[in-house]
């Protein structure tokens, strides 16, 4: 093992010494807006259930639901705003890396030579800000591929083009 430690590692490109690029700042707005929409639906749901379903209306703790929902909502917003600056990506000559996470920090790297195809998705709210997400797929049991959410669509297209070139090369 000494062989490995002394001779190889020092020359290897180090993932922890890379300068990562942040995702687009508008994506925070997208995150907030999406959560807002989801919780609005939830609040309305509780409201209507309380109005129309007798069992729930008679349930004495029903107002706690609003409280609970608000707490979750605020928690989510906090996590998003803390975690937002940690969503970073970097493209190297031979691989693409993405890292994120507040409670659980994650870093993933996919070498271009293992990529099966690349997809660009635009969610409705993202589209308002001209943002897209870049999905990278590998072969086989690929439940754990790499997704970079919240980059400018032109940027995403450029990256896709770049990766496709690297795959073909």
């Amino acid at each position: 093992m000494d062989y490995f430690k002394n001779n190889l590692v020092n020359q290897l490109p180090d993932i922890s010494e890379l300068t990562f690029k942040r995702i687009h700042k508008d994506y925070l707005k997208v995150l907030v807006l999406t959560t807002l929409v989801v919780f609005l639906v939830l609040f309305l749901g509780v409201f209507f259930l309380k109005k129309n379903v007798e069992i729930i209306a008679n349930f004495e703790y029903v107002n706690y639901f609003y409280f609970l929902l608000s707490i979750i909502f605020l928690l989510l917003l906090t996590v998003f705003s803390i975690g937002f600056s940690r969503r970073k990506y970097v493209l190297r000559e031979k691989d693409v890396t993405y890292k994120s996470g507040v409670l659980i920090e994650k870093i993933t790297t996919v070498p271009y030579s293992r990529i099966q195809h690349v997809e660009i998705n635009e969610a409705p709210i993202s589209r308002i800000f001209k943002l897209a997400s870049l999905n990278v797929f590998t072969a086989g049991d690929s439940s754990n591929d790499l997704v970079i959410k919240g980059i400018k669509k032109e940027e995403a297209l450029k990256i896709k083009e770049f990766i496709n070139q690297q795959i073909d090369a």
Binding site: L103, I104, E105, K106, I107, T108, T109, V110, P111, R114, T138, A139, G140, D141, S142, N144, D145, L146
Partner: peptide, 24 residues
């Protein structure tokens, strides 16, 4: 095929991580 490092906030205090190797 892709490689991942995961670290929970509890693991961070001990400076340990999970290493996940994804194959086909």
């Amino acid at each position: 095929q892709n490689i991942k490092i995961k670290q929970t906030i509890f693991q961070k205090r001990k400076n340990v991580v999970n290493l996940i190797l994804q194959t086909a």
